[in-house]
Design a binder for these strands. Structure first.
Lengths: 231, 231
DNA sequence: TACTATTGTTTCACAAAGAAACAATAATTC
DNA sequence: GAATTATTGTTTCTTTGTGAAACAATAGTA
């Protein structure tokens, strides 16, 4: 068993809600445990000599291959219904490890983080306990284990209420994007349509966008500008 | 030693930033450890069978005698500089406990909560490790141990940015208060003056206040209404 | 060259916010 | 008991921001 008690802090874990965006839909990375039809958020543990933030970055980087990702902590979950030793034991059994008792079966208080990443840049990798990790549309998530659905809800709440302040750190879009694409991201996250003219006015007035050459091979109509976030 | 390892989750603690308000000043509860000139936020640990939120409520109630307090989690701190076994050992030594090693000396990830309470209702009680617990003006805090100053900063940030949504849950004022007192609370928290007329208009338009009889033994001028929050 | 779809901008109506003036009144002073 | 004073509650005016619609520009298509 690779997870040795001595290496990790006990009773602490983290779970991450990784948002991506494709076309018009907000997506979330969800993994499935071996043969169990059990779906969960990607999470992990904190090493004894490792800052919490670093642990989360490490886990995310292992799963997505991405570094330098915008990560934000949003809430810590510590209720008693996050405690189901039987499920955890079954999970290890499927992996071929049969433990009567294991620190893994204990109670964990979990720190929730979310990340915003560019969907197209990522080929997610499952870890040793899970056999798949896939993008799911936010509105078509499978039933998640324990309180993970609540964790997703709270992550999105937090993201919605802080959207404007977080623009600069966005990784949901490619380096350069059109105003329409930016608006679609907003609409996907907020779950409601925005007025086009006012959206443009607001974004421009925030003074965080740089306008570039037009470059559009699209349809038979006026070509949009491309924008990037100011550094 | 009363803190038995078996009873508590390991590597996890909480710290609470307890805001009070008196006159014009925002205040915070700070405790001092025995003979150590070490100041810290009141905190504690989570029992094995206790939800995190309950643990914090329990600790707060033990220290202030208050129940039914508005408590909000705002951030979890997990950096490596929250790890100073020597200081913790010295603290226990002062108490008469000499341990070579103790789970107390370990590394803790701490969950930060803040509370808003009515300054006048509280006579704070020190716990067994501390010899005093007192109110300090926010702008005259003593030097706090480890990262506790950062915890206070972050609590206030969080409070400021969510002030309007939180009015109903306020406990900073007595049951009935004048509009001026309410404004003073806002100004103390936000750290800036508010326009009187607009403040009144805004508060009334929120439709969360109940206006009561005038009752004022104050100065030689028009008497203010008293208000309370609608239930 | 006219047409079409989409983008960028402007205009107009309306709501919200900030500052100042006005009105009301409880205690004090003469 | 009338004038005074300090403070409170409200109104008015101006400025700013927001939402909806109209207008203008233009890359490709017919």
């Amino acid at each position: 068993m690779p997870l040795l008690q001595e290496e990790y802090l006990q009773n602490i874990s983290y779970d991450s809600v990784i948002f991506g965006f494709s076309g018009e839909k907000l997506k979330i990375l969800v993994l499935e445990y071996h043969n169990m039809k059990t779906f969960a958020l990607p999470g992990g543990f904190v090493k004894v000599n490792e800052p919490l933030d670093e642990a989360v970055k490490r886990g995310l980087s292992e799963r997505t291959g991405l570094d330098e990702i915008y990560l934000e902590q949003f809430h810590t979950f510590g209720s008693m219904d996050r405690f189901s030793p039987a499920v955890m034991r079954k999970m290890l059994l499927e992996q071929g490890y049969d433990y009567e008792d294991h620190w893994f079966f204990g109670r964990f208080i979990t720190v929730g983080y979310y990340a915003l990443i560019n969907y197209e840049n990522v080929v997610p990798k499952p870890d040793e306990l899970s056999d798949s990790i896939k993008w799911y549309d936010y509105d078509q998530l499978p039933k998640l284990m324990m309180d993970h659905a609540e964790i997703v809800e709270k992550a999105l709440d937090h993201l919605r209420s802080n959207l404007d302040h977080k623009l600069l750190s966005f990784n949901l879009l490619p380096e350069r994007f059109t105003m329409k694409e930016l608006q679609q991201v907003y609409e996907a996250i907020l779950g409601e349509t925005q007025n086009r003219a006012n959206f443009q006015r607001k974004m421009l007035s925030l003074n965080i966008l740089e306008r570039h050459e037009k470059l559009f091979l699209g349809g038979s109509h006026k070509a949009p500008f491309l924008y990037s976030f100011k550094k």
